[in-house]
């Protein structure tokens, strides 16, 4: 289902420096976004993801490397080529960035205006776009009169006006409450599926990635530490940053408990089978759960659980054997 490569980022580096400071925002980053996929770039704040997405349409200019759009280097383009390429890329922002002195309709019309689309044609297109984002009745409202979610919808309609091939989303849901975030994510997914528009989004929330992305790159310290299909990266996440973002590792390193314990790693076991309950019922062993951090993805469980060490050696062996037979990894912790 992979389409042709649309955006290829090759060995991209960006350093911000002034007299006193030198900050490496991007360090030798390479990744490829294919047509029609939803590509997520995730990282903690300061990981360089915002700089990365801004290099795609050259709002920021990297110090080294290439950004190829359909094989053509954006960084080598002259002004005219850059402007016409930018018109094929819509972009939405955390703070919406609507023109505050223009109505909703006039905002959505802006990209059409600058592209010289005829008046009547532009009007029809504006209505069509507001229809897509469900704001037909707000044509003559001003952005100040809208809620955050509505503003982002206007921004999306505006970004779609020029019929872009790709939509760049710079923390598009970070300023929104959870319910509004859901509706915007659903809208983005719908746009991807119905209009076939490729989406590149950056976020610090793994939930956003898990909900709508096909592929993901995890950024840490200006570098791609992991990249691949969302499901695979989630299962096989190796990097510290990945584990923290997926919630497999707590934000702070997990401390081992004082008493002897067993660490059970759920690595894609079926979420439907009540494994712990079965263990207790079938073997009559009482289990004391110390802590658990389990996430569900595609009907499977991922994460870790810490249980108190059974007092008897025999019980312990039974527990370990049972869990391992269910496809889990069990490690002893703090066993003298």
């Amino acid at each position: 289902m992979k389409g042709a490569p649309l955006i290829e980022i090759i060995k991209l580096s960006k350093v911000f420096s002034d007299a006193e400071n030198r900050v490496v925002a991007l360090n030798d980053i390479s990744l490829t976004v294919h047509e029609k996929e939803i590509y997520g770039i995730v990282g903690m704040s300061g990981a360089g993801k915002s700089t990365l997405i801004r290099c795609i349409n050259r709002l920021d200019t990297p110090n080294a490397g290439q950004v190829l759009y359909r094989g053509r280097d954006i960084l080598a383009m002259d002004r005219r080529q850059l402007l016409s390429t930018r018109r094929k890329m819509g972009m939405i922002f955390q703070q919406f960035n609507l023109l505050m002195q223009r109505t909703v309709g006039q905002n959505v019309r802006y990209p059409l205006e600058i592209a010289g689309v005829k008046h009547a044609q532009a009007n029809a297109r504006v209505r069509e776009l507001l229809d897509i984002v469900g704001l037909q009745d707000k044509l003559n409202a001003y952005p100040a009169q809208l809620s955050g979610g509505q503003r982002q919808r206007v921004a999306i309609a505006r970004a779609l006006a020029s019929n872009p091939e790709v939509l760049l989303c710079d923390e598009a849901t970070s300023a929104l409450d959870p319910m509004t975030t859901q509706s915007i994510l659903t809208l983005l997914q719908d746009i991807n599926q119905r209009l076939g528009i490729t989406i590149v989004l950056i976020t610090h929330e793994m939930a956003v990635i898990r909900q709508i992305c096909n592929r993901v790159a995890i950024l840490d310290g200006g570098q791609v530490v992991e990249e691949g299909n969302v499901d695979e990266v989630f299962v096989h996440t190796q990097s510290e940053a990945g584990k923290r973002l997926f919630g497999i590792l707590p934000e702070a390193p997990d401390e081992d408990p004082e008493q002897p314990a067993l660490r059970i790693v759920f690595d894609g076991a079926s979420a439907e089978k009540p494994i712990m309950a079965n263990l207790i019922r079938e073997h009559g062993i009482l289990i004391n759960i110390l802590s658990a951090n389990i996430r569900h993805l595609g009907g499977k469980s991922y994460g870790q659980m810490l249980i108190e060490m059974p007092a008897e050696l025999e019980e312990k062996l039974t527990v370990v054997a049972y869990l391992e037979s269910q496809g889990m990894t069990v490690k002893e912790v703090n066993n003298q």
């Binding site: 349409n57 709002l59 402007l83 016409s84 390429t85 930018r86 018109r87 890329m89 819509g90 972009m91 922002f93 703070q95 960035n97 609507l98 023109l99 505050m100 002195q101 223009r102 802006y110 990209p111 205006e113 600058i114 592209a115 921004a155 505006r158 970004a159 020029s162 760049l168």
Partner: peptide
């Protein structure tokens, strides 16, 4: 941010001044 959004849409400098900055 508003200026950047207009830049991202492929505005020329003149369009930015006349249609974004001044209004």
């Amino acid at each position: 941010g508003i200026i950047e959004a207009a830049q991202s849409m492929g505005s020329t400098s003149w369009q930015l001044i006349r249609k974004v900055l001044i209004p």
